[in-house]
């Protein structure tokens, strides 16, 4: 092949939204009394953002590809969390052992189980609930709300109405301390998992043929079919993967909160919606930046004025929509 390689970048990235993250962090710096507190809050914010990203990325990708917004996504998060309780509580021997590897192995099992369950439910959900209403937005919203009602009731029927305590594995409790700076261990793990998910998504989307198909399908699924690809199969796979990511996020979030309730999914969904709107409906990159922004904002404002933490994120959303009415990275559609 003759053309010169890398003469131009693979994609011309719009960088100004990226700058928002350091801007928010720097604006917060003088407002927060001490530097160590600021570092702690920043790490906490990034960790929270990563967990939100894990939960939100699948949803936004599904929307971009299939033009479907699954209002029942929160139920997958809750189911993931409850599956984790069913795996981790009987494995108390592993989680209470003072061995990082035993702890991580237990978590890995919980994560795999949660992802398998939510992925499978997602598959069934797509086939039974969503398939008949592709392209009809109003019915989609209603039908996925119906799915949410039924899913929540089934969760209550299976796991009961009471809150379940889910303590972190022993070696993931406590903090790393550097001088005055305190960083919770679990938050470091959350950041690592979030980065791993982002990297994996980035590689799949940009370096594989399936990723190429997905990106093309987000833009124009009819044209992808005209090139001879059965995009429906990709749709189903992405839906199942997005649901599995919700399950993973549910496990991470549940261990972070150390409690599991049937309302937790719906609770996080509000942040997820804000993140998706900020990022631009359908944009994974925008979702990543939006998640970090929301995580940082929630922690800084939560420290300075706890009562208006959620309000600050709504304000952030409104400001970003005034700047870019389609969100940070509008997805090019036909």
């Amino acid at each position: 092949m003759s053309p010169e390689k890398d003469e131009l970048p693979g994609a011309v990235l719009d960088k100004s939204p990226l700058a928002l993250i350091p801007v928010i962090a720097l604006v917060a710096l003088p407002l927060i009394p001490s530097l160590p507190t600021w570092v702690t809050l920043t790490v906490a914010g990034l960790a929270m953002g990563m967990m939100i990203f894990i939960m939100a990325s699948g949803l936004t990708l599904v929307f971009g590809l299939m033009d479907v917004m699954n209002f029942a996504h929160g139920a997958f998060i809750t189911i993931g969390a409850f599956v984790a309780t069913s795996v981790l509580l009987p494995l108390a021997g592993w989680t209470r052992a003072d061995s990082l590897w035993m702890n991580l192995a237990a978590m890995l099992l919980a994560v795999l189980a949660a992802m398998a369950v939510t992925g499978a439910i997602g598959l069934a959900f797509e086939r039974v609930i969503i398939k008949p209403v592709y392209g009809q937005h109003l019915k989609q919203i209603l039908i996925t709300m119906g799915g949410l009602i039924v899913a929540e009731q089934l969760i209550l029927a299976i796991w009961g109405p009471d809150m379940i305590a889910l303590p972190k594995p022993v070696t993931l409790r406590g903090s790393f301390i550097f001088g005055d700076i305190v960083i919770e261990k679990y938050r470091v793990l959350a950041v690592l998992v979030g980065l791993a998910v982002f990297a994996a998504m980035f590689l799949v989307l940009n370096r594989t043929r399936v990723g190429l198909l997905i990106r093309a399908g987000v833009e124009d699924s009819e044209m992808v079919e005209s090139l001879g690809y059965r995009i429906r199969r990709v749709f189903i796979g992405v839906f199942a993967a997005g649901s599995a990511l919700a399950g993973l996020g549910g496990v991470m979030w549940a261990l972070y909160q150390e409690t599991v309730t049937s309302a937790m999914g719906m609770h996080v969904m509000i942040l997820i919606f804000i993140v998706i709107i900020i990022g631009g409906l359908g944009s994974v990159g925008g979702c990543f930046i939006g998640s970090l922004l929301v995580g940082l904002m929630a922690n800084y404002v939560g420290f300075l004025a706890p009562k208006i933490a959620l309000g600050s994120n709504i304000l952030l959303m409104v400001l970003i929509l005034l700047w870019r009415p389609q969100g940070l990275y509008p997805v090019a559609k036909r």
Binding site: A11, R209, V218, D220, M223, S226, L227, Y229, R334
Partner: peptide, 30 residues
């Protein structure tokens, strides 16, 4: 549609159906 395309029919729609976010190389690779 995919079955028809797989029989060996290439299609250039009126809108051209270019994937704007994909590079020229990626458009052709796909």
């Amino acid at each position: 549609t995919p079955a028809v395309a797989q029989l060996g029919i290439g299609y250039v729609p009126e809108s051209m159906g270019i994937f704007a976010g994909l590079t020229v190389r990626e458009n052709l690779t796909l």
